[in-house]
Amino acid sequence: MSEGANGMQGSDSVDPHSDGAPDEGATDQVVEQGESVRESVASDQGPTRGTLRDVADSLGISSAVALRALRDLDDIRPQLKTRVREAAERLDFPLEELAGEDAHKGVVAVLVNTMRNTWISDLVRAIRIELSATGRSAVVVPTRRRVPEYPIAADTDAVRSLVDLGVDGFLMVSDLHDVDSVIEATAGRPFVGIGCSRSFTGRFDTIRIDDEVGQGLLVDHLVSLGHTEIAHVGGVGSQVARERADAFTLAMQRKNLEDHARVEPGDFTEQVGQTAGSMLLRGSQVPTAVTCANDVTALGVLAAARDAGYEVPTELAVAGYGNTSLSSSGVTQVTSVDPNSDRLGALAAQFLVERVSGHEQEVRDVAVAPSLVTRQSTAAGPRPEVERRARVHID
């Protein structure tokens, strides 16, 4: 699970019978956490309410304990129940949607392009935690039709089958192929997008990653290390990729480095990332740092750097996007933008439940602010230009 923008990482493995609450001597710490969570909620661009995760984080307890307290179960101390409910009211958590422990109201379908993206598991976990407060569960459904004559078509038959089975609504992760056909197949069921393109704003509720902030954090970090020759691998395969590449270019412009910015076409796959990385490292103008559309692409660029004999980070800095387990492993240790997946998933689940419950309101759009997690892959600035010119000439 990725760490949220508020700097805390809640645990859901706390024993509910021990209530997971801080001791009485930790009051100041609890207050500080509460303020931090409120600031995090307020930082989102758009109308938002507190999530179950926010309530738990504000008190330094697990989501499981917070939920049991809100349900007034006997194994939670009365004092903690009171504090949890007060926190929920302060953060505007939708208490009206709270369900009993044994209530089962239905199933939500999470529509994805692929099951191979580790970022999806982070989102699904957050979605399930939030849905549990309303007695709902989630199923993850790949929607890309896997037949040769329809290489990028959506499997609308699967979506129609979900409607026939009576799912409450749909959550779309990133941009699905042939979205219009998918929405038509949902037969008017509530539909919410997570981590999708801003081009969908106004069509249905969207909870997006603020990629302009994310790319700005990456470029600011690399420039602070002395990098000016910075490239980006991405911009291909989806509107999200194109918007992320545009955000990189804009961030470079803000640093007056637009003449040094280079976008090498690439999608979200490791194979294409490796090909793009090889192209960047072959020319006479080799960048000193590369940002990538996601963590998987960054792995491809790292492979290209290894094949070309470039040391990371002393000869090439590489950064990813998503802060998935791929970036944080002991082998890779890749600097990455943390999109705050916990909040993205929780807000999306909350929005969908409100729509399922019949809340009539304007279509909402929220841009969740990401944060930057620095690791070994960007731990050094660029080598002096004389050394770099010598290296390119030798190669």
Rank of each mutant, 00 (worst) to 15 (best):
M1G: 08
S2N: 13
S2A: 11
N6P: 00
Q9S: 13
G10C: 04
V14P: 00
P16N: 01
P22K: 03
D23Y: 05
D23R: 00
E24T: 07
D28R: 00
V30L: 03
E32F: 02
E32M: 05
V37L: 06
V37F: 06
V37H: 07
Q45M: 02
G46V: 03
R53N: 13
V55I: 12
S62Q: 06
A66S: 05
R71T: 14
D74C: 07
I76D: 02
I76N: 07
L80K: 12
L80T: 14
L80G: 09
A87Q: 12
R90V: 14
R90F: 09
L91M: 14
D92G: 01
F93A: 10
L98F: 10
A109W: 02
R116K: 15
R116M: 13
W119V: 01
I120T: 07
V124I: 03
R125C: 02
A133L: 00
T134L: 05
G135W: 04
R136F: 00
S137L: 03
S137P: 00
V139S: 05
T143P: 01
R146K: 13
E149Y: 13
P151Q: 05
D157I: 06
A158D: 00
V159D: 11
R160P: 05
S161M: 15
V167P: 07
F170Q: 09
V179F: 03
D180I: 02
S181R: 10
R189H: 10
I194S: 02
C196K: 03
C196W: 00
G202Y: 02
F204M: 14
T206C: 08
R208K: 05
D211Q: 09
G214S: 11
G216Q: 07
S224T: 13
G235A: 03
S238T: 04
A241C: 01
R244D: 03
A247R: 04
M252H: 06
L257P: 09
H260T: 10
G266M: 02
E270S: 12
V272S: 11
Q274S: 14
T275M: 05
L281P: 12
Q285E: 14
P287M: 04
V290H: 04
T291V: 08
A293K: 01
N294M: 04
L299V: 15
G300E: 10
V301T: 11
L302S: 04
A303W: 04
V318Y: 06
T324W: 15
T324N: 14
L326W: 15
L326T: 12
S327K: 12
G330A: 14
G330W: 11
T332I: 12
V334K: 12
T335Q: 09
T335P: 10
S336T: 12
V337C: 13
N340E: 13
R343T: 12
A346G: 12
L347N: 02
A348H: 07
A349M: 08
A349E: 05
L352K: 09
R355D: 13
G358C: 07
G358V: 09
V363C: 07
V363Q: 11
D365N: 14
V366H: 01
V366C: 04
V373P: 00
S377N: 11
S377L: 09
A379C: 04
A379L: 08
G381I: 08
G381A: 06
R383D: 09
E387A: 15
R388Q: 15
R388F: 15
H393D: 11
